[in-house]
Amino acid sequence: MLKYIIKRVLKAIPMLLAVSVVIYALLQAMPGDPIDMYLENPSATPEAIEAIKKAYGLDQPVHIQYLNWLKGIVTGDWGRSFMTRRPVLELIGEKLAPTLQLSGTAFLIALVIAIPLGISGAIHKGKFFDNATSTMTFLGISMPAFWFGTMLQLLFAVKLEWLPTAGRTSLTGGGAGSFADVLRHLIMPAIVLSLIYIASWARYARSNFIEVLNQDYIRTARAKGLREKTVYTVHALRNALIPLVTVVMLDIPAIFSGAVVTETVFAWPGMGSFFNDALNKQDFPVLMGILMINAVLVIISNLVADILYAILDPRIKY
């Protein structure tokens, strides 16, 4: 297994290099120049704009710009944001904690709810509970996050005044910034974000479990006279989880990259809104930083998923 892991890690290096070339090329292919937009400011002079371009190395040919970026990333200098002039790593570090807080909470909520919900739906297939959960998950997938978020704000913040509308902390009061304060701010965005995961994972869990329940070995287990509970937990669950592991693991990078819509609606200062802002302003160093971290996370998640397969299914060996 260790040999397999080392092999996969070594294979990841050229893959990441290729990914960085593709991302860099795609970003460069976006029409326009990220600094030219500042000329819209009537108080800006063309000379000042040229100086800014030079300072950011944008006067160099694209391949030189890429090599400079690559050299920087290897030596730990991820460049400066075109917008704030601050180091990219520092900015990502600031946004990471709120994002992990929100996405991590939503992820855990979804994990705790979605799998039992899907399995229960599969066990009670065609019955009221199954129909109800299927309808709810369908609604969850279909409901736009911005609409659901706004509705929750109107109900719980404006109408009932139970929760704050947006933000991560209160501005005033003794408890501002405390754990309980952050938790109150976290409730609505976490619900909105987790709903998307719950809806998707519950449907996966349900369909996988139904498929496993139709297998011959389940029929054999039942024929042996095992209790239904034993059949579900000992024989079916483990096998049903294998495809779900892939789905869940591939969603893990999203914990890092954040949720653009949810974070924007709830003014949550995380990676999602940060990425969206950088994209709109063609802030290449920030975009490259976030996308490369995502690429690394996707590779790691895949590796972890493969390792989990081997743990869940003894027939799989590397």
Binding site: M30, P34, M37, L39, N280
Partner: peptide, 13 residues
């Protein structure tokens, strides 16, 4: 329709 920065750059150029 273009992202703000792209629109600005296209106009300026």
């Amino acid at each position: 329709e273009y992202a703000s920065s792209t629109w600005s750059a296209k106009m300026y150029d």
